[in-house]
Design a protein around this nucleic acid. Sequence first.
DNA 1: CAGCATCCCTCTAGATACTG
DNA 2: CAGTATCTAGAGGGATGCTG
Lengths: 146, 146
Amino acid sequence: MERLIHGRPYAETEHGPVFRPCAPHSVLARLGDKWTILVMSHLAVASGHRLRFSELKKGIEGITQRMLTVTLRNLERDGLLLRHYFPEVPPRVEYELTEMGASMLPALEGFTTWIRENWPRIEACRRVHDEGQDRTVVRKARSPRA
Amino acid sequence: MERLIHGRPYAETEHGPVFRPCAPHSVLARLGDKWTILVMSHLAVASGHRLRFSELKKGIEGITQRMLTVTLRNLERDGLLLRHYFPEVPPRVEYELTEMGASMLPALEGFTTWIRENWPRIEACRRVHDEGQDRTVVRKARSPRA
DNA sequence: CAGCATCCCTCTAGATACTG
DNA sequence: CAGTATCTAGAGGGATGCTG
């Protein structure tokens, strides 16, 4: 028996529900990395929806050449991004979201709205929780991350 | 000047758009980790919307005690999860999503729908791309991850 | 039962140097 | 300009052992 809960497929078994090994996870993991969403967002708002490597690098504070390259290659591999190479001297490369890539951000919009609305509360919860931990001993914060 | 694009705030500068240091990223990074969504999904569909530690462990294939504990503590820290401790012998602990936690999965639904619809295409793109790389030399696939 | 503590290994991101 | 190659520090995650 296959059902959907919150858009996720799962099977009902005798031991309770079991969720699928999770195709969504692979996508969420990609989005959860440090630079992917920033790159996609910049391409989405760019005039002509295209940007050169150096324009992306300038527009994204703190990204290194290497990480920009890696992020772009991963997006290209997933079919979310096109790479246009112009063999000039000096070389010019332009990046552009594919149709699928461009359709992803609007699909995410409902969730980003939720995040914006709930973020202050999440932050407040973290502060309260972390203070409660800091009795007499300084402990490592649990995955600060960002 | 502050605007919204796809639900994300950004500022228009003389050098082009600059996105905020990204509150959403911290949330997406949490969701992108290996177990968080599985834990939340199980709690969402559980009868009574509560599960014991051991029930979660049994319901999530492959998770270790340590990772389940870490995941639960992180969710608790963010105010997405409540921990109910019953000082019996042997001890019993039940976990339950908070109102905020329960509201997160429905907010994510639009996006998980997008993922389900586009996942086959993403997979196909990856296969094609990876084959194109495998000329004469076997290279490491770029972040297989899942 | 529901954990915490510890060890260890892998993978990632960042820094740096070099190149077509 | 737009990368690639290499090195390293640190986080994430698994295995194991111990405990209130």
